[in-house]
Amino acid sequence: MIEASLMDFKDKIRKLYIPEKVHYIGVDAYEGEEGLEVRYWFFSYETRDVVMVRVSVKHGERVPSISDIVKPAFMGEWEIADLFGIEIEGRVENFFLSPDSPRAPLLNKKKSEDQAGREMGEK
């Protein structure tokens, strides 16, 4: 498992990802206690191990896309952008959801509303 921040995760992925040796599996998000986590999954053909790159992201932060390094990554990014409401560069609106389905369904609703309320209060 590789821990990374929003600043340096692209460099770390660039170092890790060699198309012949490492297979890109997918991207996933999870809502923990302190905001969101975006996880990139890779599989190394040599060590036969699943490698995870974890990036912690706060609500409403913009995440750069990795599809310039890992080409097939864009679909997974659009998916989590829709399901978690994460702002990812180059996302397509309503890739999975219909206009009338609930927004960001996989988020823990109450918590995100609290967060939004707090942000509003600060402003």
Binding site: I25, G26, D28, Y30, W41, M75
Partner: peptide, 16 residues
């Protein structure tokens, strides 16, 4: 469980 992530085979084959 807290989170179940499913990455299906066709999802990886569509980008090409």
């Amino acid at each position: 469980p807290g989170r179940v992530k499913i990455r299906t085979p066709t999802f990886a084959n569509i980008p090409i």
